[in-house]
Nucleic acid binder design. Sequence first.
DNA 1: CATGAATGAGAATTCATTCAT
DNA 2: TATGAATGAATTCTCATTCAT
Lengths: 183, 183, 183, 183
Amino acid sequence: MGTRKEQAEWRREQLLDAALRVFAAKGVDGASVKDLAEAAGVTPGLLYRYFVSKEALVETVLRERGFMPRLRELLTADRSGRPARQVLVELLVSFDALLAGNAELMAVFFSAARARAALAELTGEGQRLIGAFLDDRVAAGELPPHDTGTAARTLFATVAVNRATGSPIDVPALVELLYPEER
Amino acid sequence: MGTRKEQAEWRREQLLDAALRVFAAKGVDGASVKDLAEAAGVTPGLLYRYFVSKEALVETVLRERGFMPRLRELLTADRSGRPARQVLVELLVSFDALLAGNAELMAVFFSAARARAALAELTGEGQRLIGAFLDDRVAAGELPPHDTGTAARTLFATVAVNRATGSPIDVPALVELLYPEER
Amino acid sequence: MGTRKEQAEWRREQLLDAALRVFAAKGVDGASVKDLAEAAGVTPGLLYRYFVSKEALVETVLRERGFMPRLRELLTADRSGRPARQVLVELLVSFDALLAGNAELMAVFFSAARARAALAELTGEGQRLIGAFLDDRVAAGELPPHDTGTAARTLFATVAVNRATGSPIDVPALVELLYPEER
Amino acid sequence: MGTRKEQAEWRREQLLDAALRVFAAKGVDGASVKDLAEAAGVTPGLLYRYFVSKEALVETVLRERGFMPRLRELLTADRSGRPARQVLVELLVSFDALLAGNAELMAVFFSAARARAALAELTGEGQRLIGAFLDDRVAAGELPPHDTGTAARTLFATVAVNRATGSPIDVPALVELLYPEER
DNA sequence: CATGAATGAGAATTCATTCAT
DNA sequence: TATGAATGAATTCTCATTCAT
């Protein structure tokens, strides 16, 4: 029953799937309506029966294929009664897996390869240099032995992301967090 | 002397400045050659005397207006003989300032407003929820009192950036870094 | 049945017809895609649904509106059992008619008016002067009376065409053909 | 004396030489003013001191580097007192050499490679087929033994050129010329 | 005389979108 | 529901030409 409606729903999902794939591969601007239609095995005209414009399709992909719902679910699950550290690890691992499993969607956020390459260069360089500095100070006995690689990546990433999203972090508080002053 | 050459050099810089502005505002794909020319107060044709293509202009902006050189300089400055924590703070503040001062360039990395909005939503939500979790556990006495807001942002940003750049972080090591097991 | 396909085929033919007309009038380089579209009463974009590029359109016109197939047919028809001279006349007249009927296509071979004018001047002058020479010698009794105008045109055209196509003719053999030495 | 004028004259010739070369290589429409200037080792602006427009340059090349003057000279030289056949051969050989020595200029008449290729195909095919026909008839004893290859090329070229230049030839007269009826 | 920066018009081509079938 | 022919606007880029230096 509802064959008509089922078929329409199925087609809609198929179009969204194809669109996510194509947007990830070519970028939102780089993907033409023809590309999108071909990837879904339909004609351009048909897209307009399901989405009023290419822009609407983009927004729908971001909304319906986005991982915010899953993220919220993940973060709000009840975990009372279990040790905090264990919960934290589990939670962050899940989040990481969520990102990994949505690589295509993440790709849509960056304007093609250019951005990803630039970002990788930026963070790579920064982390390497901060890591070297930390190693020095550990060797000199000023800082206690610890995982300097992870520390460098943590410091760098935190400053960068929070600046990029427009809410800069309190740097002294960040340093205090990782390297608490003896009291 | 060299008025001709000076003028050409000046024009080149002016075109790059305008391009950075326009790319940041509209995204690389969203900015047409006409937009770029208008922002510089010249005709589209002139752009092609200075850059062989729009693509070449993009690359030049990224290269010549990029902050990698300044970043390297910043991170490699000699800071021996001063306390590690102080150096770290200074270093990260400088890096943060560098990013802040190059907001336009950062914007170029993201495909227009859409990406920035999505990223902000993603991180905001995640950090808020992790922060709430940490607060709970501090209230319950399981974790020592600390700056949970900063901690949440740190954890979240670190996992996200390192996944986005293709080199995922070791989550247990990250948690151990912020919340070392008593020994 | 097949109204859609028929219509598309008709449109394709129409575009080729219009293109042949415009190319003949303005030359291949002189005809813009806008000109071609206007001549066919469509928008430039439509041309690209039928031909991948202007260049492809040129090639298609040359191939599908070319007279090589008809020429081959003409020259290979069975004519055994009829006098050679009669066959030759018939054959050349047919060929001439073929060229006449495809004046537009011939025009495409020459880069616009300039070339045709130059060619006409060149041949006109040459034939006139050779004709005068032949008349002289006929008047002097050195050559037998004959159609000197035709002879002049023949000699001139033969040398010119064969040079232009890159396979120069054997001039003494040519002269011997028209004016055999007494034996 | 007149160093100024001499220099100007020299430059003018140099520009014409370069233009002939470039026009022949790329076609009149395919050669940009930049190409022309570069080939002459000057800047585009300078061309306009010597020729009011690109069009004027084209016309000047055709006029001043054309071979009409030399052709006229060649054809009107006094050759009285020498046998007609010998004169004809000499004359046509000179004409042929003139064309060969001005291959570049000839190239200017044709809109790039396309035209030359088409023309070569057309004549090649036609001459081959007519040649075969003549051979048959010679073998059958209907026509006297003669140079059928040259005859085929002659017949074909004559009809084609005269049609192309707009003054079609009298075909029966042409055939009578090569194959006179016994009387 | 010579340069080359700058322009304005126009070239080929692409593309989101509409609509008759 | 689905097609695909057709459009009109925009895009990147080229080019003949001008003119201040």
